[in-house]
């Protein structure tokens, strides 16, 4: 049913640390690797070995340059996948009931055998978290690796989403954001985790942790007095040397 269930107590989701993500795209590859051979239709590629490659991915990493009023610009890598929103507009627009939110843990999924591939749920998602697979004609999206996290055939440490398991920087955290005492909830509280596009009213479960403020270099340097630039006033040996060297072909002017 595409009516949203009442808010669940358990809200499984991701917390992504924009301070530590190094933009390696390992999570993108791990996600595609796991999800192309497990839950639902495979994630197809078109023209994979040509100049016009295109394909279906459930997780993508953007990179942004942020220019503060003062000081140097910062480069911030920005992984983005489904945020498993509480007020998920992608669920209510679906005409077939294929798009649904689980009442027990809040995961948003697509039942692919009901999906007619109308694309409306992707229209309704502000985050670009849904992609219609060009080969299969059904809507694909992050499943929060629902087939890993509850999978008792996997060793305990592997029962988390593939992206979280693979991230070499520890920038991705998985847990229950409905439980205020969980590690992820504490992390969000400590670091000031935030929502993407809060004005869209989707109430995302996934949170993002802001980059920590950059250190400011102090002006003072103990050696500075001894390293003053060459005198500009035009006297002495240094001045003569400067002029002599500048006069040589290719010398600085």
């Amino acid at each position: 049913m595409t009516q949203l269930p009442p808010p669940s107590a358990k809200k499984l989701g991701l917390v992504i640390d924009l301070d530590t993500c190094v933009g390696c795209h390992a999570c993108v590859v791990a996600c595609k690797g796991w999800n192309t051979e497990n839950y639902g239709a495979p994630l197809s590629d078109q023209n994979a070995y040509s100049g016009a490659a295109s394909g279906t991915f459930l997780n993508r990493v953007h990179s942004y340059e942020v220019q503060p009023d003062q000081g140097a610009a910062q480069l911030i890598h920005f992984p983005k996948s489904c945020l498993h929103c509480e007020d998920a507009p992608c669920v209510t627009v679906c005409p077939t009931g294929a798009s649904y939110k689980r009442a027990e843990d809040g995961i948003v999924l697509v039942n692919e055998s009901d999906c007619i591939g109308c694309g409306l749920c992707a229209w309704a998602c502000p985050y670009g978290a849904r992609e219609l697979d060009a080969n299969e004609g059904v809507m694909k999206k992050c499943t929060l690796c629902v087939d890993r996290i509850y999978n008792e055939n996997l060793p305990e440490e592997d029962r988390q989403p593939a992206c979280v398991r693979t991230c070499p920087a520890g920038a991705r955290h998985f847990g229950d954001l409905g439980d205020a005492t969980s590690d992820v909830s504490k992390l969000v509280a400590e670091r000031g985790g935030f929502d993407l596009m809060p004005e869209q009213g989707t109430k995302p479960v996934n949170k993002y942790l802001p980059p920590r403020p950059k250190d400011v270099e102090p002006e003072f340097d103990i050696l500075a007095p001894y390293l003053e630039p060459v005198a500009q006033d035009g006297t002495g040996f240094a001045h003569w040397l400067d002029k002599a060297l500048s006069a040589l072909p290719g010398g600085p002017k």
Partner: peptide, 14 residues
Amino acid sequence: SATGLGHIGKVRAF
């Protein structure tokens, strides 16, 4: 608002 990075400065897609 899309990136939540506005508090740092002006955001540009790099």
